[in-house]
Simulated scan of single mutants.
Amino acid sequence: MSNREVECRGAGSAGACSGPVTTGAPVPLCDRHLAVAHDWVDEAHGVVDLADEPCPACGSFLAVRYPSGRACGTCEWRFGDVIDSELPAPRVDVVYYLRFDGRIKIGTSSNPRQRLSRLWHDELLAFERGDRRVEHARHVQFAACRLASTEWFDRSPELEAHVAELSAGQPDPWQAYARWMSAALALRV
């Protein structure tokens, strides 16, 4: 049976719709009810778009448009909110995981862009929100594969699983950092 032979399952104020289901539709709805569902999804989840200007919090041009306004698609800062430039920049401490050759470095910084620019590495694997206490806990947790008394570790299944867990759903660590900075900025506005 083709979709054109099935009646739409949408309903309105007049009752059930008897229109034909749109060919190839993932749900049995007519064109009109598919458009209504599309508009509802746009309002509920936003529409990804390009911004006219960079986000004041993270610099991204990716935006999400909602009926109530636009937000940055990277850090979720609401366009139109003003950052108070007289306040000091917020501090967001992170534990970073870098790969260089077959080793992984676990370190911490409150200014990761500056810190990572000074370190030889092949790849930034992940960020974890935290300060020296979290860094120390990770050094203890993965002590079995630690190289002497450095911040470098041999790769191990446990360490790689931890890094994979941190980066799950967030392939770009800088996007997570941008969200954390945006949240810190929002708290001080």
Rank of each mutant, 00 (worst) to 15 (best):
R65H: 09
Y66M: 09
P67Y: 04
P67C: 07
S68R: 07
R70V: 07
A71C: 05
T74H: 01
C75N: 00
E76P: 00
E76C: 06
W77S: 02
R78C: 07
F79H: 10
D81L: 09
I83A: 01
D84G: 05
S85P: 03
L87P: 06
P88W: 06
R91A: 13
R91T: 14
D93I: 03
V94E: 12
V94P: 07
V95N: 00
Y96T: 09
L98H: 05
R99F: 05
D101R: 12
D101N: 08
R103I: 08
I106K: 02
T108D: 07
S109I: 12
P112A: 04
Q114D: 11
R115L: 11
R118G: 15
L119N: 00
L119Q: 09
W120Y: 10
H121N: 13
L124Q: 09
L124D: 08
A126N: 08
A126W: 08
A126H: 06
E128Q: 15
E128D: 12
R129Y: 11
R129I: 14
D131I: 10
E135L: 14
E135G: 02
H139W: 14
A143R: 03
A143N: 04
A144S: 13
C145W: 02
A148K: 07
A148P: 00
S149Y: 03
S149R: 10
E151F: 00
E151Q: 08
R155K: 11
S156T: 10
S156Q: 03
P157L: 05
E158A: 14
A161V: 01
